[in-house]
Design a protein around this nucleic acid. Structure first.
Length: 238
DNA sequence: CGGTTTTGACCGGCGC
DNA sequence: GCGCCGGTCAAAACCG
């Protein structure tokens, strides 16, 4: 039941490396509606993008220059935690901004995310570096739990859960400060695979879905064969 | 009946 | 030290 899509390309910590993030302030837009293969199937990509100088497409295809496999962000803060380091454009800062007021912790009721059954209707994927940039490590002395590589992108879509070929199980939902839309937390159902993803809608533009993947799959997409693209396609799962 | 979703509680990091 | 907040847990509800 989880159609999710995009062949997991993103997951693999494409942009996770803090260094890269720091320098490659990308915020690129993928546009290539004619790019069949990239298993971003339902979407059309638009424009090219660069990640640290690399063509986005190639990046998506796995040509990203050596990204240290598991670089987690050692010692660094978690996404959106350090206000001092976040740039104003930082996605996470927007989403998780600590402005004040209320404890926003509980989950809002009524919102039904998770409908994996529907396929995204659409369009425009925007890989956002900002968010990534936000993940820069803080210079903290205390070494914290190692984080898995993360990669996030925005998608203009009516549905929240994109079909990336993997099966996901929702394990939490939470309303983050200053946002009207709750953030949903998913984990890959595959045993031994610890990949997680978060899905939320942009506060400024509810039509945009922000998906953040964390970790790398240790298996191939569950239904890659059936749903996925035409041959030549790169079955990306890194 | 097994797997998934919902949702309140809990945990731990961080800023003040 | 305390409170805030994001992330996770887990029991109950739900669904096919």
């Amino acid at each position: 039941m989880f159609p999710s899509t995009s062949n997991g390309l993103m997951n693999q910590g494409l942009v996770e490396n803090p260094e890269i993030m720091a320098t490659a302030h990308m915020g690129f837009n993928l546009q290539a509606s004619h790019l069949p293969p990239l298993s971003f199937s339902p979407y059309s990509l638009s424009k090219t993008c660069t990640v640290g100088g690399e063509d986005a497409v190639s990046c998506l295809r796995g040509n990203l220059p050596s990204l240290p496999p598991d670089h987690g962000d050692d010692g660094s803060g978690r996404l959106g935690q350090s206000s001092t380091q976040r740039s104003s454009s930082d996605l996470w800062s927007r989403a998780g901004d600590r402005a004040a007021n209320g404890k926003g912790s509980s989950v809002a009721a009524g919102e039904h995310y998770s409908n994996n059954k529907n396929r995204p209707a659409a369009n425009n994927i925007v890989i956002d570096s900002l968010s990534v940039g936000a993940m820069r490590m803080k210079k903290v002395k205390v070494r914290r739990k190692v984080r898995e590589p993360r990669f996030c992108f925005k998608t203009m879509s009516e549905v929240d859960v994109l079909d990336d070929g993997y099966k996901w199980r929702k394990y939490g939902q939470k309303v983050v400060k200053n946002t009207q839309h709750p953030r949903s937390y998913y984990r890959c159902t595959q045993e031994n695979c610890r990949v997680k993803k978060r899905i939320e809608r942009m506060a400024e533009d509810p039509r945009m879905v922000i998906t953040t993947y964390e970790g790398r799959h240790v298996h191939s997409p569950s239904h890659a064969e059936e749903e996925s693209q035409p041959s030549s396609e790169v079955t990306l799962f890194w």
